[in-house]
Design a protein around this nucleic acid. Structure first.
Lengths: 213, 213, 213, 213
DNA sequence: CATGAATGAGGCTTCATTCAT
DNA sequence: CATGAATGAAGCCTCATTCAT
């Protein structure tokens, strides 16, 4: 209220970003249902009707947040991965970018991961993004295995990928609650866990469950 | 018209369970906010004031759901673990019990995992249960490592445990959406992934990140 | 506020009638859109949520008004018509009942005739009632004509009936704006107009339009 | 980018007609309240502030529609009536012009008849036009009767005229919903009904109501 | 002249929660 | 013990209307 004078009559594109910023923040803090359009508008420094005019319904607004944050995250990761890298390098750079993104956009991550999951209407939206990510990871594993002359059943790959993605998400979540943790270190640890596990897979070593019922 | 019908007037404990059943079902289907006390009461076959009289506020009701489902899950797992088993057996039995629970109580799992996480007031409640689980897993890993003469920094253990729990949750979630998947098979796969990763940890093998900044 | 003490906790049936009374009054005075649920609730001496609980949406409430008033009117008319009367008697008694109803339920009439017509969602509802009435009138004319040995094309009957109904509605509308007009006299005049017109029809006399294009 | 395109900057009068066209269309389709200034402006291919600058408030805009359509209709009718025609010819030409107008300007008719009637603020406006029409019809009847040497009480004339106008409106409404009906045929039928009824009036024949109370 | 940007105000609807019977 | 009746509060959304460019 005392520092930067708030300008009026900004162009649409600017206002839309302001609104999305506010929306991500409020959704992240309160959750989809508990968030109020009033608070979002106020936080964006604009009146409610503008939010509706530019970004539509509360649901549409949430989807817009989802898309923006999801795209940003995907791009952050895709931007550092190069198909010519060896697999462990791809994993390392990808995870590091991922954890860095989470550390830098905690709100966005919370919106994507904690909120979207719980709210029925968006589970689908999120599932698509998640599936894409799982697919990418599975593909990475698959190529690494084939390069090594080994073949694995699709379902095994999918599950392995799901576990890996789930572990990463869990750690991201852990990171989101610890403002001073170092994302790079976390990435290194995660690579360690994932890569060594995958290494076993590569070497064909398998744990066998006892035969009892 | 004057004799009270005998099938009503159930003892309080029974009624409470009916209500909790209904509540878990509705919360699971709709999410905390979207769920209405009306629907819960109707689903429980009882009038709203009774719900309030027995289980209190909507928030308290949700917490009660959380506790019941959480306790059930914990007990299901604890019931099959025996401290004298070797570590891989403990992991196997624990995970199998966990996935079996999820497969048999999808609604409860959804309440615990998908809903409680997103809604601020309960994140804390859940975090406690989660932390307890992580601690148990970390302890398991720690003892295994110490038994092998190796020592690992606490933070490494915590992260490894977080990853393991996260991977398991992710697979549980995968399972919750696939009614005909076999929990035992999934448990076996997860043990495979986890144990082999841990094996590397045990053997002291480590992936080193490149030295660039 | 000073005369009859307003009782609380009235049974549902009573409250519903109170609400419908208020709704008819307010809709009639303001029109569907301009009427506010607040005003209706206040006028009914009850809070808004009760209106929603008992009678649903604003649209549903309006339809309920339509049905109640429409049914009342139909019954008022049907109650005095006897199939064994000669046709002119049926017309006379029917019209008299109709105008009496309008005089006694001005609000109801306005809701039915002036409001429902203009508002798209209800045009259909109303059209059905109107069509029923037209059909009845057409049937009445048809029987009178056949009894006289004459046959008329269906379309002619329909149009004749439409004109008759339209004329009556117009006069009803005239009546609704003149609180001290006498409905019985108006009915007599209308019978005169209608019956004599029909008399010409009976006698087969026809006006021929000039042959120019 | 610097030369102003020539196809814009239409003269004011043209722009106003475009706006009125759009307004009539939208009001007719949605009704006064449900119509939005946004839709009208968009449909007119012009920005909202222009609408306000040229035609004022929403209410004023609606009144402008009413006046234009009402005037057009009146003129269409007046243009074909000649005071020297015999009465039945005047009736025939007038009604034909009326039904032709309705068939050709369904939207305008709906605005005039269905919408304006229901919305309180305009009922007055419309009543004036309607009264003028009734007066004209009554005058026509009066002269025909006087020419025949008969005198009728003013109230009887008014009611007869109201009935006639009401019947015509009802048929016009019937016509507005039947795009392929022939207005000329309808006019002929209406003349038939009206003229023969009036004929009875002329001949002094009267239906007498029973003497019971 | 023309318009994109902006908002105050108000209406519909729902819900958690409580009272009086 | 049990419930139908009742409500305060709050949220989403839309719209007529006006500025500032």
């Amino acid at each position: 209220m005392s520092t930067t004078p708030t300008f009026k009559r900004l162009p649409r594109a600017v206002r839309e970003q302001q609104m999305l910023d506010a929306a991500v923040k409020v959704f992240s803090r309160r959750g989809f249902h508990a968030a109020s359009m009033d608070e979002i508008a106020e936080d964006a420094g604009i009146s409610k009707p503008m939010v509706y005019a530019y970004l539509g319904t509360k649901e549409e607004l949430f989807v817009a947040c989802l898309h923006r944050e999801g795209t940003r995250m995907m791009e952050a990761i895709a931007g550092v991965i190069n198909p010519e890298m060896p697999a462990d390098q791809r994993l390392w750079h990808g995870l590091r970018a991922f954890f860095r993104f989470v550390a830098a956009h905690r709100d966005g991550w919370v919106v994507l991961y904690r909120q979207a999951r719980g709210e029925q209407p968006f589970a689908g939206e999120l599932a698509v993004m998640r599936a894409r990510m799982v697919e990418v990871v599975a593909g990475m594993l698959d190529r690494a295995l084939r390069a090594d002359g080994r073949e694995v059943r699709e379902i095994d790959l999918e599950i392995q990928a799901y576990a890996l993605v789930g572990a990463s998400e869990s750690l991201a979540d852990w990171l989101a609650d610890r403002p001073d943790a170092d994302p790079d270190q976390l990435a290194a640890r995660m690579v360690n866990i994932a890569w060594l596990g995958a290494g076993q897979l590569l070497s064909g070593e398998v744990w066998r469950r006892p035969t009892e019922g």
